[in-house]
Design a protein around this nucleic acid. Structure first.
Lengths: 208, 208
DNA sequence: CAATAATATGAGCAAACCCTCACATCGCAT
DNA sequence: ATGCGATGTGAGGGTTTGCTCATATTATTG
């Protein structure tokens, strides 16, 4: 009944097995949705036996929890990468654009996987396991906002850090899931929304 | 293999049965997620036999498709209601606020259900069944934007109609799913984002 | 080269799954 | 009242599911 891992991989090949299982999970969900996400299907796709899967994951939900954690970590890493790659004289607009691009990558590669993780994250009790990533992501955004404190309205940085990622996510998903996907518009619209949000001045209670 | 309904309810009680099944589906998903969404569980919760369920829905996926359609229709209806309830001299801000509130209702009542529908909508081939609602919702938003054409920047109304609903959705979900939920901030942040998006003027290619 | 620990296997069990079908009940028209 | 179509029933068939465990293979250690 626990969601925690069952056994740690000590040797190299064990680590490779765990990685193959997680990658296979992402692929199965990405192509057949949560409805096709069965432990047998994952094992087959990963090219390992079902027994191996259950040596490292205590249950199907445990596997899902690990997958969520992996995706969260990747998301934070790609945002961090995008920020650190920013030129020192970058404009607010180009900074926002870079962040939007980073966010687009994951969600557009695999909208089925992204929405599945959204759902399972709500269902499973994993507050403690993703809290850290949320905090890291928040810190990255607040750090960036400080750099452009002059250009932005009176937003509370912590609020912005909570609001912006899901905002971008929602807009990007909507445009990217059209057929055919409208990636350019997705980027443009998300950027517009973020910049509009950041620059807005409320009706006067803002210390100019 | 078809997603279409199997038999139409002619008598009143049959219609009640169909409604009970759909409502039970929403409740089951809302409390146990897609993982708990089984046809037997739905029938039991609806207080009907499993046989009755399969008289009106050809398959589990067919039931899901009908549920998605129902939810979409409700969403459009509540937005239409919010718009028509607007005072004729309402400000853009109060109009946006009303729309945000309408959007908040569904997603906050049942975030698990909302995210499940998001996922299944991607997995199932139902472009033809939800296209109409998308169009209706778009028409409502463009109509509203025309009323405030002076106050807003140079947004394409069709783009805005596609961008705004998921934008609001993302922001509201993020704030409403905290524990404890921050409904006031959800409304404030979503409103801010929408107003910022609408009022923004691009860097000059806007026919003032 | 043992010997021991780590890793991998897959047949298969109990439970749950989706869905069918033969039958019972209900409501309306005549 | 009678007939007939519409509606409701639920046991259970055939399949799939999550998961275990006895066993085999591979790596590491002394």
């Amino acid at each position: 009944m626990t969601l925690n891992p069952r056994k740690r991989p000590f040797q190299g090949r064990a680590h490779a097995t765990v990685e193959a299982i997680l990658e296979a999970s992402a692929q199965v969900i990405g192509s057949h949705g949560l409805a096709g996400f069965t432990t047998n299907a994952v094992a087959e796709r990963a090219g390992v036996s079902i027994g191996s899967l259950y040596q490292y994951f205590a249950s199907k939900d445990g596997l899902m929890a690990a997958l969520i954690e992996r995706q969260q970590a990747r998301q934070v890493a790609s945002v961090a990468m995008a920020i650190s790659a920013l030129a020192s004289d970058a404009s607010l607009e180009s900074a926002v654009r870079a962040l939007v691009r980073a966010a687009m990558q994951h969600h557009h590669d695999d909208p089925l996987l992204a929405s599945a993780i959204d759902h399972e994250e709500l269902r499973l009790p994993m507050d403690d396991r993703i809290g850290g990533y949320l905090e890291q992501g928040g810190a990255l955004v607040t750090g960036l906002l400080d750099r452009f404190a002059g250009e932005i309205g009176c937003v509370d940085p912590d609020d912005a850090a909570r609001t912006l990622p899901p905002l971008v996510r929602g807009v990007v998903d909507a445009w990217a899931n059209l057929s055919p996907p409208q990636l350019d518009l997705a980027e443009a619209e998300a950027t517009r929304a973020v910049l509009g949000y950041l620059r807005m001045r409320e009706q006067g209670n803002c210390a100019s």
